[in-house]
């Protein structure tokens, strides 16, 4: 049976009827039409679907939409403000922290969480923080550079 849920998605409240089994990632992508977060696996390993729910980075393929009822959901589309890229987005761009771009929204969203909790991470802490996000293109080195750069910018 469908249930009504209310979610504030990137600052905009919305209400939808959803099946309980609808995954949050499918709610965001197929119901709300925000396709920035991606599905890269079904075993909660790759992190391409990472979004923030009430400020907490989660893998939205491992959460049902009903669990997000009443919560604030932030996706990659909600990161830039007034047309200005977020510092982390800018850092990924400047440091060539992406190639095919498929993992990138998840990488950026988890970076946000890493830096919120530890504004000046060491390289080891950055790599540990990226543990739940797979990238097949970059070998991670430019992603690590991007996180470092974003940290330096945010700290400054």
């Amino acid at each position: 049976m469908k249930r009504e849920i209310s979610v504030t998605l990137n600052g905009k409240p919305r209400t939808d009827e959803v099946e309980p089994r609808l995954l949050l990632i499918h709610y965001i992508r197929d119901v709300a039409g925000l396709t920035g977060a991606h599905v890269g696996c079904e075993t909660s390993i790759c992190g391409a679907c990472t979004v923030a729910v009430d400020g907490i980075a989660v893998k939205s393929c491992t959460m049902f939409a009903v669990q997000a009822d009443g919560k604030n959901v932030l996706t990659i589309e909600g990161l830039a403000s007034n047309g200005n890229l977020h510092t982390i987005q800018e850092a990924f761009w400047n440091e060539h922290g992406l190639q095919c771009g498929f993992c990138t929204p998840g990488m950026i969203m988890v970076t946000k969480q890493i830096l919120e909790r530890n504004p000046n991470p060491t390289e080891e802490e950055i790599r540990h923080g990226l543990e739940g996000n797979l990238c097949r293109c970059t070998g991670y080195q430019h992603i690590v550079n991007a996180v470092k750069t974003a940290a330096a910018k945010t700290g400054a």
Binding site: G47, I56, A57, E131
Partner: peptide
């Protein structure tokens, strides 16, 4: 345990 996102949930 797991990773940042897994530890969050």
């Amino acid at each position: 345990i797991g990773d940042v996102q897994v530890r969050n949930m």
